[in-house]
Nucleic acid binder design. Structure first.
Lengths: 253, 253
DNA sequence: GTCTATACAGTGATAGAC
DNA sequence: GTCTATCACTGTATAGAC
């Protein structure tokens, strides 16, 4: 899954032509099979990728238009402003976060299982909603400055609230060591998962003697291990991590 | 130290006027006491702050010029390009990283002490070279795209190399548990410290029931504890963290 | 639904007067 | 060392023809 998306092809002429002929070929007859009203979702998909790579403010509407073979002006038939595109990109991933949290809260398992399931789920989302995740990470300053994007912070808050509940429950149940500063630990766990997923997506290789292509599962296991070491009460450190059981439950989330 | 720098005052007219009178008042007589040839370092300081807050690409030369009470064109008497300003901002913090690494390598202490000293040093740099750190973090994509900034990656590599040596030594010495995947652990530790420092600087408060103003030392202790839990061989988990001894050595670094 | 054409503010950078 | 004036370009966005 790790990939390097670097080549910013300057395919203006080439693609302009190819598509123009394609379009003329079906003039007046909107195909239902392919991407008809899909212009809209096509724009969303391309924008998400560009925003993730260059940042929202550093992506121009011309760049977006180029990649969907439109002229800049034509974008404004589909969206009122560039910011509206961003709003719509954020909508679904944010909804998923809320749904995940509700589902995990309802589970009838102990705090450690919930922690593991939450970790699996969050890490999966971070990795597979990669564009969303990059945007949230890279344009964090932008979202903080702009009041009309405050709902982004609200979703983040929900994630923190769930983690807080889990940590406190686990401490009461004696599963986690009693000295945990939940406030600091919540932030630390969240940042570990987000930044690890960003690394995993980018496929960044920093050390020479490990060309290393790590699988999703291996990276996930590593971080589960780290998090449980930070949190478990020492006497429980050698207990196995109920990975499979939690994995099954995580799929239902 | 945590602060919120949000207000981007639109004081163009106001400051334009006030300064113009101030300058006319001392026309022709450059004061030696204040900032004479300091124009240059003043520009660097202001630029670092702006780049850190808005990102390099989203900061305009006019913004910089405004804040040092110059016109945009005049900046080009001091620097050839906007990118040169960035190059110079990066120079010193990067040099410090290299020096830190050399100093730590030379220390005659065991791997765990080195790990702790390295953690203290890195965290301190992250927090107090805050502008540098924000730039590295926020404009990471920019640096990765641009070959003429490759030296940034090189410094990062040195940090990783040192951590790798420490981890391997500690495992051989039986101080750290033997199963550590050093490659993954290096990245995880580095990201934990960088992202924790970014959080600490921003003073971001995400949970309602903890208004919490954490001290530098408290946050550092928390992360030292987390890192050692992840790494120590279980039987050594209850040994105290030699904080003071390492703190003294870290000050010499 | 897309294109042509354009408005208009902002961008990094330069030339030459003072 | 700073200012004035300006260049060539890119930024988001709009109006109206097809």
């Amino acid at each position: 899954m790790p990939s390097n998306v670097s080549q910013r092809q300057n395919n203006k002429l080439e693609s302009d032509e190819s598509v123009r002929t394609a379009r003329t070929g079906i003039r007046g007859r909107p195909r239902a099979d392919a991407l008809t009203s899909d212009r809209r979702s096509q724009i969303l998909k391309v924008s998400a990728r560009l925003f993730a790579e260059y940042g929202f403010e550093n992506t121009s509407v011309r760049q977006i238009a180029d990649e969907v073979n439109l002229l800049a002006g034509s974008l404004y038939h589909h969206f009122a402003t560039k910011e509206d595109i961003l709003h719509e990109i954020l909508q679904e991933p944010l909804r998923r976060i809320v749904e995940d949290n509700i589902a995990i809260t309802k589970l009838q398992v102990d705090a450690e299982h919930k922690l593991i399931i939450n970790t699996i789920t969050r890490f999966r989302r971070h990795v597979y909603d990669g564009h969303f995740d990059s945007i949230i990470l890279n344009d964090g300053n932008f979202f903080r400055r702009r009041a009309d994007f405050a709902y982004v912070q609200k979703a983040k808050q929900r994630v923190f609230d769930l983690l807080e509940t889990i940590l406190k429950d686990g401490m009461v149940a004696g599963l986690f060591h009693p000295g945990i500063d939940t406030y600091l630990m919540i932030g630390t766990i969240a940042r570990i998962l987000a930044s690890a997923a960003a690394w995993f997506r980018s496929g960044d290789i920093y050390t020479s003697d490990k060309p290393a292509s790590y699988s999703f599962d291996r990276v996930l296991d590593f971080h589960l291990d780290c998090i449980l070491r930070m949190i478990r009460t020492p006497s429980r450190l050698n207990e196995p991590i109920p990975r499979e059981a939690c994995e099954r439950l995580a799929l239902l989330v």
